[in-house]
Write a protein that binds this DNA or RNA. Structure first.
Lengths: 147, 147
DNA sequence: GTATTCTTGACTAAGTTAGTCGAGAATTGC
DNA sequence: GCAATTCTCGACTAACTTAGTCAAGAATAC
């Protein structure tokens, strides 16, 4: 498998910050509750996002986490790579600086195309896009209940 | 990671059969030596390919393995799925019969596009294509040595 | 000083990957 | 029928990854 709970939870946490973080820091407990993520586990994901510069955190009462940049300037590709590590689909495509390594597998050329397409699509999506989709999903859910 | 040694070795074994299997069965020892694959491990991969109908095997002296269909009629997608299992990049995309499961992750829509693109590309490549590429690679390698 | 909140590293259980090994079954040629 | 060859199958293993948990500690607000 590819995108596990790290990538899923981590991106959901970022979306949560984008949606509800307008008025100051949000606590991890709040994110965990809203997104159904184990709190202790979320800690590690937030730590990675902080170290990579996506969020900043403040301690003490009233503390929490908030985005360091506007959601429209955060792209899904970099956030996912921060959370999951390299997304390369096979070992011989890890950081391809086109230096010939000796492990050139037979299917490399197909997968290089697939990988390039994947990165392009992920780079085109911003956190703002994801938050807008989520907003819409919640709205649709709410109206379907109220009918 | 995605495509491991199962997918790499298994496809290389199929390419080997496509390239050298014209005149009768090829023994696993020969494939293993030519493709640098541990023989005992190759056993399991060949067994899976046999059970999925890609190859047939005969025992006894002079026995070995051969393709069940022309190389041009074997597509990379199905061979890889046989060897590696589902190629879905995230749990919520496993066999998507578009029934709403409750685990809908926020990024699903991007990844569904990526997955569809991936499957289309893999389906368009046949074993004959791969064998031709390999043939060319070996030829280029040989001439570069002889210069 | 106390309560709150984040920070960090150590630890664990379960599952996957990449194999190895050995007993056995089918086939060929004599 | 016997021996050699070759595939078949299931059990086993070591190392690694994933998905967490837990506890001690540091910073901040009041």
């Amino acid at each position: 498998m590819y995108i596990g709970t790290k990538g899923d939870y981590g991106i959901r946490a970022l979306i949560d910050l984008a949606m509800y973080g307008g008025a100051g820091p949000i606590q991890r407990a709040e994110i965990a509750r809203r997104q159904h993520i184990p709190e202790a586990y979320l800690d590690h994901l937030l730590a990675q996002l902080r170290r990579a510069g996506f969020i900043q955190s403040t301690r003490g009462p009233g503390g929490g986490h908030q985005l360091n940049r506007p959601a429209a300037e955060i792209c899904l590709l970099h956030a996912l790579e921060t959370l999951e590590g390299s997304l390369a689909p096979m070992p011989c495509l890890e950081d391809h600086d086109d230096g010939e390594s000796d492990s050139v597998c037979a299917q490399q050329w197909v997968w290089r195309e697939i990988y390039d397409d994947m990165r392009a699509r992920l780079q085109a999506v911003t956190l703002a896009d994801l938050a807008a989709r989520e907003q819409e999903r919640l709205r649709a859910l709410a109206t379907s209940y109220s009918i």
